[in-house]
Design a binder for these strands. Sequence first.
RNA 1: GGGGCGGUGGUGAAAUGGUAGACACAGGGGACUUAAAAUCCCCAGGCUGAACAAGCCGUGAGGGUUCGAGUCCCUCCCGCCCUACCA
Length: 822
Amino acid sequence: MITRTKYNPKEIEAKWQKHWEEQQLYHAPDDSPKPRFYNLVMLPYPSGDLHMGHWYNYAQADAYGRFKRMNGFNVMQPMGFDAFGLPAENAAIKHGIQAHTWTLANIVKMREQLKMMGAAWDWEREIISCLPDYYKWSQWLFLQFYKHGLAYRTKAPANWCPSCNTTLANEQVLANGTCERCGTTVIRKEIDQWLLRITKYAEELLDFSQIEWPEKTVTMQHNWIGRSEGAEIRFSIEVEGQTEQIPVFTTRPDTIYGVTFFVLAPEHPFVAKITTPQQRAEVEAYIDQARRETEIERMNAEKEKTGVFTGSYVTNPINGEQVPVWIADYVLMGYGAGAIMGVPAHDQRDFEFARNFGIPIVEVIRPEDEEPTDPATWHGAKLAYGMMVNSGPFNGTPGEEAKTAVIKYIEEKGVGQATVTYRLRDWLISRQRYWGAPIPVVYCDTHGMVPVPEDQLPVILPEHVEFKSTGESPLRYEPDFVNTTCPTCGGPATREADTMDTFICSSWYFLRYADPKNAEQAWSQEAMRRWLPVDQYIGGAEHAVMHLLYARFFIKALRDMGHMNFNEPFTRLFHQGIVLGPDGQKMSKSRGNVVAPDEYVTKYGADTVRGYMMFIGPFDQGGTFKSENLAGVWRFLTRFWDLIGENWVENPNSAETPASQAVERLRHKTIKRVTEEISNLRFNTALAALMECNNALIKLQSEEVAHSAAFQRTLENMLQLLAPLAPHIAEELWQQTGHTGSIHTTEWPQYNEEKTRDENFTLVVQVNGKVRERIDVAADISEQNARILALGNERVASFIGDATVQKVIYVPGKLINIVVRK
RNA sequence: GGGGCGGUGGUGAAAUGGUAGACACAGGGGACUUAAAAUCCCCAGGCUGAACAAGCCGUGAGGGUUCGAGUCCCUCCCGCCCUACCA
């Protein structure tokens, strides 16, 4: 017998957390002979508060890692902080506390909160992205990208607040197109920016064959990359007596005879050259207006089509026709060629534009069985493929064939070729911000732009800066930072004052966990081979096209540089659902429905809060936080605690009885269910299975079978099955029941399929598919006997009546269905 | 407009094409208690019914496939999320 005490989570949780830490129980050694399992969750931003969403995500991820550990894997489950970014800078501006101080204080607090979860984090591997020993390598990576032509500097349009005199991230532009700080309308401005050439990997990034990711995420990345097959076609134009070519991109070369106008994006370099003097004033006014518009306004498809005629004409290369050149903001400089051929009959946007400006509409594609109609009577463009009409020598060419025929023709004529275009743009990584990793580049009067040599890294970010109200990066005003010498000539030079997008830091953190203390390299080849790629990655779906795409790009680029021998960073990906506030709304400070876990941890203990998070529902669905539901898990843990306290015996009775055999079946069934559920990240049903087992054992506890070896074995296995979900109570009871060593290093209980089978089952008897009777029968009943039993049953007979039995369906172990007809 | 996810009791939810509602929460009844809390036991999809007799209906709506559909197929309705002038 063990000493009976009351379940007191507060006491035991603190005790075991301390013990595990002292024992370094969760450190993943580099030299283990066991197979590795890299179990990763997206690292948090150190906001200073660990909220319910973190618990929801981390508790279940932790349970999975613990399950894998008990199943014989050397599990690496690291934790760290994505510590650069705007909130720290805003806190600095608002409260006058330095971003560095604010962030590190938050990390101290959050680390404590994370430890209260009792999760198996390997703190030996912790990384903090805002510390020099980490961002040194972010800078080193930038230099590698630069060296391989994957990082470049160019003028790129950015959101610009004319009042704050700075660029803004897209997230800082409010929905109505104004600056979040001062309310001024944000405009677009061309400034020098650093970009990474992610577009070079567009094609390979479309290949998801080596990873097991949610279909939804694959689709989102696929759409984001946006591959379009079509043709580049060059239209010619006379500029100051010279013939120049303007290319367009189209996915519908088959409609080229329907071109009745031509449109350039307002920013297109040709606009100034081709605008006639009479049209100049109007065109310039339009460009000015377009520039003032935010991207959000401009991309609103509901908006009326606007545009201005430039006064010039281009020549359609296929038929020599002259068509007017317009500029319009529905054509975007950043996509395709920044120019389009206007085919109003077969493109909805062109149709609307032509209608607005009285441009002719010519039908050139028509389904074979359709009569010609007057386009003036149409209500919209005809997008379907069909036979070419009004298309000179191409008349009668059908569907897809029409596309290839036109492409072949333009290629032969040398006025264009088949092309693939992607929606994906290069990744703009410069931020005119302080709290980020400095871009390791200097500008010298003699040598121009010079990358900082690797042996001079890190370029240290000053911990103390002064925030002035200019809105510019404070780094620009730090002489000690900005003023430096040229690495090439030693002459005076200026440092780049822009910092890197924080997504750079999070694009490779999972590599650093494998070799977190390496002072010589970002990681060793050995560490890569040992730990990467990540086996299971768990995180929010909101990162589907940002972080998750950038990380894939990083791995592919680094592989091509010779730093990796694998193609994808995350083999299996899982998106957890979102925990909503008690009002069913997304938790947010402004709504005032944010639930802090701390008070519930104090009241019920971490194990109950963990369990409740799992019990809310399927892991990928999230759910509404309801404090009253914590009671269910609390009661279960308490009852289980008491069950063991009152029934654990040291010398059980090993005799087999029918009752003990039934308990033994329950044991095998429960192991099977819990094993399968956790394997599939279904913690809600895993917990339900344990509850069922618990309830069943409670019913038996006053009977003799409670002293049987089978019963005791079941209690023991229950503890192990519970260990990943509620690690503290399981460890405590493991110790109380006289075991030595941690339960978390024990081997996961095994079940025998044979022994999960019942001796009897309830044979369901249906008549015409409706359940009419349930008969308890032996598990191995023959079909013949089942038939006899069913047909001989009085109730069943009354439902059959005088109808004729047509056939009998027998499903072994389940049911028998008697099909009758009158 | 495009893409995705979902719709099952009062609530959260279970259910390899085979007994719909496991497991819980809230609720009702009872036990214990001076009382409350906690704990324990019992009830609980809807309708008809005195019934713990029996029957009928029931997984957003309507069709279909099947001996049998919450589950598969088609059409539609509703909700949520993402995305959006991409040529």
